[in-house]
Amino acid sequence: MSNTEKVGPVKGINKDIIWKAVYVFLLIGTCAGFYWATTQTNYIWHWNRLPKYFYFIDTVEVPAEIEGRVASITHAKGQTAIIVKDDDESEHYTFPGNDVRVSEGSFVYMGDVLGSYEEGRIGLLTDGLIITIEVSLVSIVLGILLGLFTGLARISANPCLKWIAITYIEIIRGTPLLVQIMIWYFVLGTIINNLLAKAGLFQIPELWFGVASLAIFAGAYVAEIVRAGIQSINKGQMEAARSLGMTKITAMRKIILPQAFKRILPPLAGQFISLIKDSSLLGVIAIRELTKATREAVTTSLMPYELWFLCGVMYLVITFALSMFVQYLEQRTAEA
């Protein structure tokens, strides 16, 4: 009898581990290659200057608004009060701190600095980021409402509603967003504000024309997504609901739309992520969103590499957060 022992099969190396290692290697290689490329450009990096574009401490000077003598200077509860008098009038100035540049009895001219104080302010990029988020959120909400009603009109049996929806969708989807923004701002915006001015009413800021252009643009794409989602539901669902005595509107609201919502959620997320990035086009009509704020910062600081990288990362954070939120909604709807 042979004393040879049976040897079991040797387990191979997990292929997933190999491909993950390849991914890490490629990522590190890409970063290293990019770093090497930047060293060949003779560019001096200034990452330490970036925080001021988010938040900074500004020194605010308090100028005299009249010409006269400083009548009194008082300090109380961390505030400084200065009174300047001339022959006919007096001015009272109050500001925090005790940094006073004048003394009692001294003569000051209009524009002379009486004192100063430090005040925290949001930076240029933070301001642009806030506007981008606000514009995107409002446009998304309006785009959903417009797209929902247009999508329902698109599959309506009423030929008037159907052809209005088709006309709107084809015109908006067939023209560039940049052109639509220009039309809204320079044509429709001018006409609307002129009519309001003649009626003695307030003027609409350019921000809302930008929101309108984005919302209407998104609404056309949302309408097609909604239409496709509704038509993907088996027609028997509607027939069964109608046989139970539901009206068409009730069946659509309680039976069809909840099922369609689960299917259209991923393409809706993609559309809204694109909308956030498309908001960068609003800079052409003097809306200081994130991209325009970055251009202004680059112009004044001459730091294109750092600021444009930072701008890209900020857009990535917004879109990634939205993507995670949509994934959460998908999980909730799947469990429901």
Rank of each mutant, 00 (worst) to 15 (best):
283 G>S: 09
215 A>M: 01
169 I>V: 11
177 L>N: 11
221 Y>G: 05
166 I>W: 10
157 A>M: 12
232 S>E: 03
250 T>P: 00
247 T>S: 15
200 G>T: 00
208 W>L: 13
170 E>N: 14
289 E>K: 10
287 I>V: 15
294 T>W: 01
253 R>Q: 15
197 A>F: 09
215 A>Q: 01
286 A>C: 12
286 A>T: 15
193 N>L: 05
191 I>G: 01
167 T>A: 15
166 I>Q: 13
178 L>R: 07
241 A>S: 15
253 R>K: 15
287 I>P: 11
203 Q>Y: 01
253 R>V: 03
286 A>V: 13
208 W>R: 05
150 T>S: 12
236 G>P: 03
277 K>D: 05
188 L>E: 00
266 P>G: 12
280 S>K: 11
218 A>F: 00
287 I>F: 10
264 I>Q: 08
194 N>M: 10
276 I>L: 11
190 T>S: 15
224 E>R: 09
165 A>C: 04
209 F>A: 10
185 Y>W: 10
192 I>G: 00
282 L>W: 06
212 A>F: 11
265 L>R: 13
234 N>V: 06
200 G>E: 08
250 T>E: 15
216 I>A: 07
226 V>C: 03
176 P>I: 05
156 S>V: 02
273 I>C: 10
269 A>E: 08
229 G>C: 06
273 I>M: 14
223 A>F: 06
227 R>E: 02
217 F>M: 12
210 G>C: 02
169 I>H: 05
198 K>E: 10
190 T>C: 00
181 I>K: 06
224 E>C: 05
204 I>A: 02
242 R>T: 09
260 A>P: 08
238 M>H: 04
219 G>I: 02
293 A>M: 06
268 L>T: 08
277 K>I: 08
178 L>E: 09
272 F>L: 13
184 W>V: 04
229 G>I: 01
230 I>Q: 06
235 K>H: 12
269 A>R: 02
